[in-house]
Amino acid sequence: SAAETLLPVRSSSAFKEKGVLTPEEFVAAGDFLVGACPTWSWESGEKGKRRPYLPDDKQFLVTRNIPCLCRAKDLLKGKMEEELLQLQEGEAEADAWVATGGSTAAGGVEDEIADMSLADDPAEGAEGSGSGVPEGQAASASTPQADDAESDSDDVPDMEDFVVEEEDDTVTIHHPSSNREGERESQAGEENKILRTRTYDISVTYDKYYQTPRFWLVGYDETRQLLKPELALEDVSAEHAEKTVTIDTHPHLPLSSASIHPCKHAHVMKKLLDSLSEGGKEPSVEHYLVIFLKFIASIVPTIDYDYTMAADIGGS
């Protein structure tokens, strides 16, 4: 944005006082994250979009191919509460921002599970959960998606023309709807779950304006077709889907993507850091992203990326 280009880069550390980071601190926290959780890595992204205040090879952080087995609205209420409880126990104190979603309606879950189609009908979703997506948006998102489902899938024109080679009998094919080796439970429920698996590429960028990390979701459906960013809202807990998730141009990739808006990040991070300090731990700036990701995990409850728990936070 224009404001971003005009603003100077933060140069003095204020992570404890304000919950914000300098670019150098972002890099230090990122290095710690990559070391503690090797599933994360630094990337440089598009050349033309590199930020001069970050090293070329450390522009943003990515972890890929994260499974998301069901939509946030399908999380059963009980399970949700259980997870939130765990989170609160672990977190000393849950910020108002963190504790949400317990009220997510569990109604209509059965119906939705029965719905095998990949392209969930957002209208139905809206009904079931009190909706993450404002109605107008849902409608505009749904129409192209429904069309895409037909035109986009693997319907290469005249695909029959491609000669099919003899099958190699030593290949195990990972095909979502075919039988999977070693997992022959083919109850309807199981099948449904498999069909609904999405995968996400998650990235964390540095937001110069808010001086905090920013969290981005790029989703793929079961057949690895790119999801419309609006559909990622289904994997955000209802409360946040309405308020804090926006769809913006990714700062380093050629696409629009769902992102958790960073306007409150500094505030929440400050609270979390304070509560850790009160608990006798002295979190260093390296731990910032681990704590950040833990807090974001409550906003995207079904995206299974949060394995930072094992990382030692504020141990020193």
């Binding site: 693997d154 290469v156 080679e165 077709q225 790119l226 050629p254």
Partner: peptide
């Protein structure tokens, strides 16, 4: 040599990616 990838329908055939919405 073997190893051409199966597509999402489980057959031996190409895949496609439609990126009109982003590109």
């Amino acid at each position: 040599a073997v190893g051409w990838e199966h597509n999402s329908k489980g057959g031996l055939g190409p895949r496609s990616a439609n990126l009109a919405s982003t590109l």
